[in-house]
Write a protein that binds this DNA or RNA. Structure first.
Lengths: 361, 361
DNA sequence: GAAACAATGGGATACGGTTCCCGCACCGGC
DNA sequence: GCCGGTGCGGGAACCGTATCCCATTGTTTC
């Protein structure tokens, strides 16, 4: 009881403690626990007994230093409580733990500094991949920044995955999992147009956000396809939140803008817009129709239930993780430019109750 | 270029590579990077130059093996996309990264097996604390199970934190961060009673869930205090989701149950209930009043805006992390039973627009 | 019956850092 | 001019595990 193998020792038990107590070598304990080496039944029993007595678990840090270790993915997200991308996180986490992988989570809060710090922190952790969630701001510097991340992670044996943003230009070692953003917006706008709406208030989101740009483009293309003039004065940019939806509609009503439908950039914005319409004495959808984007649970919980664009967020998360896993299994070779580097998932309109033909004036 | 210090080497650069390239010892590089040892300006420059050239980051696993390492907390949650407890996660993560700590996230999906597996996985990772989020099922086995977790983590130098559930009985090394659940329900029910409601449909949640039990008890106590008979037939148990709220109310209307208000176990349940009332041709709050619990963003986005109980979820997360940090700084001594082991945060009613006196019949 | 072989356990080393301990150089004071 | 002190850099011993390589034992084959 004088040695450091004393069972009452503070701190956690080591593999040496187990070996000593079971009267076997350290190597044997390791082999019993790994299970990838022939071991006699007698030895296994002896070791497992002690493992349970000591409530021993292997030290993950030591294990990964020595070569093994559980793969870990880092999920970087703007805001955990955000509506849509938490579903992506769920998809990633679910697929990861299905394989016994771990998930680290970091929130960037839209702060480039924090983003950089987190990427480096994750690089230190030796994560298998860093998965960046959510639309990006289309600044000039952005492409360079991401390319730097990608190369940096690649050099460290890790990998960058972009989810929900456009792919990087040039020969950059990164994977992108995207959805047909513009196509969804096109379909959604077409739905309004075919219902007879001609003057539509568009709330696409922040002008610099890639997501918003895509949604606006899709809508505009639909108008062109229908030969309907697209009025830029009916486009109001702003953040993807309830307040913006409310304020934008309230302001539009105050200014007496003429519109019979609202094309909101997200379901949450649609919820705010709907509330403002009601506050202004208008009925939805009898007086004004309204559609959203994302198809989060909220959409089917509003009254009337919201017609919106379904985005397969959770599936995107699963796809992202699968891409990482495949890459790892196939040796992570330098087979860039092939498929698999950029996956685009489809979107579709979910018709509910918030759209009607415009009232006859 | 024959040695493994060659710069074009695959895999990440090591501290040895940096040392060799800078022509200094490994110890010096470590000291420059740690910054906790006097180093000449000349040496610092030489080392930092190489660090940047090689884009070197220290290996977190090696570092924590050797003693240092960034503290990491594990957040275990039922469902990332769940409404209320993601805010706790946000609070934890925010407070953690403010200190440079990392957050691991795992989802249990209400599966005890997965919970156990995750706790062990986190123990392997040597996390500073495991933070368990969300109400618990009050099975007999539960207390024993948690006590085992607590001791197991404690023995490994880690610590268990329970958030949003009642504290463990007996001398167990765990910290609990709780909110005044029953008090909030009492206040909420009182609000309905003082508005004149006497027959209230109560949807507390699953009967076995500690959260639901507390909310039901609070409501019952309020009825007693007001001298109003509490009708058990008006209590419907079920999951905390939109569908349950909808179905429960629909069924109640079908059965012709007599009530003038709905006391929902959560805001999401209230949303479902509200929808079902409308579907049944009833107006809210003119015909039936309705209240929720949690005060998630959804509450103020419903029409009418929901009167509910505010629970300081994000703050609870911050408090949980602060408790862990304090414990760590003060040596994590065995000062159990003192304060700080159980923190209870207050709740309060947020009055909005979903409550009116009952209609005169 | 001896040799070749399969099965299984042990010793030693490597993984990439941190930190203790020591040495060297340069300084001022008596 | 010599000694003690101070400032700073290097060598080496760990941290806890996986695994390579070798030794031992029991078994099969000619």
């Amino acid at each position: 009881m004088s040695e450091r193998t004393a069972s009452g020792d503070s701190g956690r038990a080591t593999i040496r403690d187990v070996a000593a107590r079971a009267g076997v070598s350290v190597a044997s304990v390791s082999r019993v626990l790994s299970g990838n080496y022939p071991v006699s039944e007698e030895l296994r029993r002896r070791v497992m007994k002690v493992v349970q007595d000591l409530d021993y678990v292997t030290n993950a840090h030591a294990r990964s230093l020595a070569g093994g270790g559980t793969p870990t993915v880092a999920i970087l997200i703007n805001n955990i409580t955000g509506a849509a991308f938490t579903h992506v996180a769920k998809g990633v986490e679910g697929a990861a733990s299905l394989r016994g992988w771990l998930s680290l989570v970091g929130t960037t809060g839209d702060d480039p500094e924090r983003e950089l710090a987190l990427v480096n922190l994750m690089r230190q952790q030796g994560v298998t991949a860093v998965i960046l969630l959510g639309g990006a701001y289309d600044y000039d510097e952005y492409q360079l920044r991401m390319a730097r991340f990608a190369r940096s992670l690649d050099a460290a044996g890790s990998h960058l995955v972009l989810v929900g943003r456009p792919p990087l230009e040039g020969d950059v070692p990164a994977t992108t999992v995207d959805y047909d953003n513009e196509g969804g917006a096109y379909a959604m706008a077409s739905h309004l147009l075919s219902a007879g709406h001609r003057r539509v208030l568009v709330l696409p989101g922040h002008a610099e956000l890639t997501t918003a740009q895509g949604r606006l483009n899709g809508a505009r293309r639909a108008f062109e396809a229908y030969g309907v003039p697209f009025d830029p004065k009916l486009v109001l940019h702003g953040p993807y939140d309830y307040e913006h939806g409310y304020d934008a509609v309230e302001e539009s009503l105050r200014l007496g803008l003429d519109f019979t439908a609202v094309l909101a950039g997200t379901d949450v914005v649609a919820a705010g817009a709907m509330q403002a319409l009601r506050a202004g004495g208008l009925r939805v959808p009898e007086d004004v129709s309204i559609v959203g984007y994302d198809d989060i649970p909220l959409a089917s919980q509003l009254t009337p239930q919201l017609t919106t664009v379904h985005v397969p967020y959770e599936e995107m998360g699963r796809v992202a993780l699968r891409a990482v896993a495949n890459r790892r299994e196939s040796g992570g070779g330098r087979r860039r430019g092939g498929d698999g580097d950029h996956v685009v998932l489809g979107t579709h309109v979910v018709v509910r109750q918030s759209v009607q033909p415009p009232p006859v004036s």
